[in-house]
């Protein structure tokens, strides 16, 4: 397609504007997006097409895989739940109270976004190994963290925390103080105010944070593999199983699992969008 025709094609789809550069920037964006993201991703579907439906189905429902789903979804769910509870407390104290070293604690929340996952993985493993700072106290109690699903959960709490805190924080900051004051002057207790005013207000944000932390946790690899120990049927997560299959040159098997996880990611992405819209409309209604 020559450039003149391409740009006239683009122009039919857009409203007129005096600003230049539409064809150039959109054209570059689309080419880059296609080459880097869309083409390689669509390759996944071609690669699985080599499997028959029965083979595909058997691959994604094999015993070892079913256990891995259980561990991946279970640990991601528990970690996201714990993050919702403690993430709310952290967001609450950061927005509402003053305390020593507040700025440092606030900055610490972002660390999981910036710290490479492999580093987090080995650091957590050293902490929770039987001889580690925390592991040595848990070992006599009979609690094993490293190389069990409990360890996976702890790694996923680490990676998911900022998603909850950073989603809830702005909503709490934005909260209309008048409602709270009105309720208090009408004699509501602090607990009533929390349950009847705060909780409904921040529920969309909490659920968005939960969904984001959960989605991230499902795909997490680097921080988990060190602490997980990766025992088949006990502490093996789906991303690791994909890696294992790939290393055994079982490309079709790896791709089949990848398709399942990709499908789950799309559902989560859609859910997060819906939750965010819900939060925005609620915000607009209240202001």
């Amino acid at each position: 397609m020559n450039t003149a025709r391409a740009s006239s094609f683009f122009k039919q789809l857009k409203k007129p504007s005096v600003l230049p550069g539409f064809g150039l920037t959109l054209g570059f964006t689309l080419v880059y997006l296609t080459l880097i993201v869309l083409l390689p991703l669509s390759g996944l579907f071609f690669a699985t097409a080599k499997l028959s439906w029965a083979e595909f189905f058997n691959t994604i429902t094999a015993d070892r895989v079913m256990h891995a789903y259980g561990i991946s979804f279970g640990t991601a769910f528990v970690a996201a739940l714990i993050n919702v509870v403690f993430g709310l407390i952290v967001a609450w104290i950061l927005v509402r109270y003053d305390f020593p070293f507040k700025k440092i604690f606030d900055a610490m929340v972002d660390l999981p976004f910036a710290l490479p996952t492999a580093v987090a993985g080995i650091a957590l493993t050293s902490l929770y190994a039987p001889s580690g700072w925390i592991g040595q106290y848990l070992e006599p109690l009979g609690i094993k963290v490293a190389f069990t699903p409990l360890g996976i959960t702890i790694a996923l709490i680490f990676v998911g925390l900022p998603f909850v805190v950073r989603t809830v924080q702005p909503v709490l900051e934005d909260m209309n103080r008048e409602l709270e004051e009105a309720a208090a002057s009408l004699g509501a207790t602090r607990m009533q105010i929390f349950l009847l005013i705060f909780l409904p207000h921040i529920t969309p944000a909490l659920m968005t944070g939960f969904a984001m932390a959960f989605a991230r946790a499902l795909g997490e690899y680097g921080s988990v593999i060190f602490i997980a120990g990766n025992k088949p049927m006990i502490s093996e997560i789906i991303p690791l199983l994909i890696m294992t299959k790939l290393e055994q040159y079982d490309h079709a098997g790896a791709t089949a699992l990848a398709i399942v996880m990709l499908f789950v990611s799309f559902i989560m992405l859609y859910l997060i969008n819906v939750l965010q819209k819900w939060g925005q409309t609620r915000m607009l209604r209240e202001h």
Binding site: L39, L41, G219, P239, L246, A258, M261, F266
Partner: peptide
């Protein structure tokens, strides 16, 4: 935004296939 919701392992896998 799509690459953010894809597991890192899958991000590598697609190029290994390609």
């Amino acid at each position: 935004d799509l690459p953010f919701s894809v597991s890192p392992v899958i991000s590598g896998l697609i190029y290994a296939l390609m």
